[in-house]
Nucleic acid binder design. Structure first.
Length: 263
DNA sequence: ACCCAGGATGGTG
DNA sequence: CACCATCATGGG
């Protein structure tokens, strides 16, 4: 068990922010958080964050995953006080952080997310993990491409993916057998625009999903995914256009405040 | 029965 | 280029 002081971090807000679909409430306010082959239980007491792990595991896994070394207070302070919409959104979601999730898991989750609702996405991801997940201690880790049946579109459909089952089957086929590693290598050498284009090259991944993958799976915080929700916020509150220039460097974080606030 | 959900695709004008 | 029907499925 480790305890560390944190500010600008609220587990409940993160869990409900629509960026991850695998956290499970423990019941006493805590959360079971799986990440790759690790699992931790987290809870908050005042300004303290408590994690059910060793100091070493905090340093090699959870510090990065929870994005503890990014100065969110500075980002909050940079928000234009003359912008009531964003100021209110940031106040309501001041505990949100952009997690550093696993790329492949994010690709699958947001492939499934299109024209879908968060409750059903969460159920589908849980079904995938239950059916194909790799036993790793006390839980099932999210299955890697090689652990998913590329030919099982029908199987994916049976767990509620709907028409996206075909997209996933093709993505599994494309990224099995070392394909994912090659993609990660290409992405690491790509700038933002190139990374977005690479991801949009997969069937079923359009601009919005690609932008979510860049933001949540690659931690490229200048991506500002525009979904139906954000589109509505922009047209309602920013008829002259959103001040993208002002928030260069952390547009994705600003986007999350707006999205969360409007849920 | 109708509309929406963290949209994308393929076809048409 | 812009528009548009269609794609499963569950919940309001």
């Amino acid at each position: 068990m480790v305890r560390l002081p944190v500010s600008c971090l609220d587990l409940d807000q993160i869990a409900r922010s629509g960026q991850c679909f695998t956290w499970e409430p423990v019941g006493d306010g805590g959360w079971r958080i799986p990440h790759r082959d690790r699992l931790v239980t987290a809870r908050q007491e005042g300004d303290s964050l408590l994690l059910s792990c060793s100091e070493a595991e905090l340093e090699d896994t959870w510090r990065a995953y929870l994005d503890l070394d990014t100065d969110y207070a500075a980002i909050l302070a940079s928000i234009d006080p003359a912008d009531p919409c964003l100021s209110r959104a940031a106040e309501r979601g001041r505990g949100i952080r952009i997690l550093r999730q696993d790329l492949w898991e994010v690709m699958v989750c947001f492939l499934i997310s299109q024209n879908n609702n968060i409750a059903r996405i969460t159920r589908s991801v849980a079904a995938l993990r239950a059916a194909y997940g790799r036993p790793a201690g006390a839980f099932r880790a999210f299955p890697r491409p090689d652990e998913l049946p590329a030919a099982s579109e029908a199987g994916f459909r049976a767990m509620g993916l709907g028409y996206r089952a075909g997209y996933l089957a093709r993505l599994v086929k494309a990224l099995s057998g070392g394909g994912l590693g090659r993609l990660e290598e290409a992405l690491s050498a790509a700038d933002d625009q190139e990374a977005e284009a690479l991801l949009m090259g997969f069937h079923g991944i359009g601009r919005k999903v690609a932008d979510c993958i860049c933001l949540f799976g690659l931690h490229r915080t200048d991506f500002f995914p525009v979904d139906t929700h954000i589109r509505q916020v922009l047209s309602a509150h920013y008829p002259q256009g959103f001040p993208f220039d002002r928030y260069q460097g952390h547009l994705g974080i600003v986007q999350q405040y707006l999205f969360y606030s409007d849920l």
